[in-house]
């Protein structure tokens, strides 16, 4: 859907993104990074608002810069939150529909359709000034949906939403992705991303640091051994057994019968652990990996 080949963008001497090569396919992809990592630049390149300094950006096989053919297939929710505050949400969306070249009747019909999709039909007659952050976000999404695009980009859509609004928007995005669309969402709230998708695009200081599935990325980070925390009633006995396993990097006794381990090749470790618990009837209450999540992966990658 979206292909970047060696794309770089510089603003004068300021770095935007640096030599990024990646492909973004259908489904939800999360665009992660610190502030200033280049998330917004990448979005602007894909939406054709900017032209890469070097390299290539292709959307649906076409160059997106100033290309209306691409614009028809790309919906964009910018991060900035500026509207014509006194107009209603319906007027705003309808206005953008007319600008997109629809006839008055088409615009009216399509406006109602997209408002229905984002769940704003009943509330769209109030002026935008009175909307909550969640409602504003929905209106932005509604206008992005006008042309029924194959690709939807959202820049920090969950920022400032309350938990209810966030949950609703995440569900909406999942629904859109379920229809085979490409949804690219930037965020820096990692647990939100974790709820949305496991497919990542991690930018750091303009460079592409990691791309692909979270689990695959985690297993490829060799520098940090896999952490496992085991809760048991008999830490000493368990420790004795576990030290026999191969690939144990460290073992630490925590308080209240907790064992903290660092292991390499977790697949083999888990197999051994499962077997040992079953065969030797070990008094284990639970085990889990505290760093098998996006937050840990993110900090491992970024601090490297």
């Amino acid at each position: 859907m979206i292909t970047l080949t060696g794309a770089s963008k510089w603003y004068g001497q300021v770095i935007g993104i640096n030599d990024i090569t990646c492909e973004i396919g259908p489904g939800i992809t999360a665009l992660l990074g610190m502030n200033g990592a280049g998330k917004s630049t990448l979005m602007k390149l894909v939406t054709g608002q900017l032209r890469p300094t070097t390299g290539d950006v292709k959307v649906l096989g076409m160059d997106p810069f100033a290309n209306p053919e691409v614009y028809k297939e790309v919906g964009y929710c910018p991060e900035i939150d500026r509207f014509y505050e006194r107009r209603t949400g319906r007027q705003f969306v309808n206005f953008l529909a007319r600008i997109s070249g629809m006839s008055a009747a088409d615009a009216k019909r399509r406006t109602e359709e997209v408002l229905e999709i984002v769940g704003m039909s009943d509330r769209a007659s109030k002026p935008i000034a009175s909307y909550s952050k969640g409602m504003r976000q929905r209106i932005k999404l509604a206008q992005a949906m006008l042309l029924d695009p194959k690709i939807i980009l959202l820049d920090e859509p969950l920022n400032g939403l309350d938990p209810v609004g966030r949950r609703e928007l995440i569900d909406l995005l999942a629904w859109l992705a379920g229809q085979g669309r490409t949804v690219l969402v930037s965020s820096h709230i990692l647990y939100e991303v974790e709820q949305m998708t496991r497919s990542l695009l991690l930018l750091h200081r303009g460079r592409l640091l990691a791309t692909g599935d979270l689990k695959v990325i985690r297993s490829l980070i060799d520098k940090y051994p896999h952490k496992v925390r085991i809760e048991t009633d008999d830490a000493k006995r368990l420790a004795g057994i576990i030290t026999e396993f191969p690939n144990i990097v460290s073992l630490r006794f925590g308080i209240d019968g907790v064992l903290d381990l660092e292991v390499r090749e977790p697949d083999i470790f888990y197999r051994n652990l499962n077997k040992a618990i079953l065969d030797k009837n070990l008094p284990v209450n639970g085990f889990q990996s505290p760093d098998n999540n996006l937050e840990a992966v993110f900090s491992y990658l970024v601090e490297r």
């Binding site: 977790p266 499962n274 209450n285 085990f287």
Partner: peptide, 8 residues
């Protein structure tokens, strides 16, 4: 199958 996590 291997169980990779178990907790209350």
């Amino acid at each position: 199958l291997s169980v990779r996590g178990f907790h209350v």
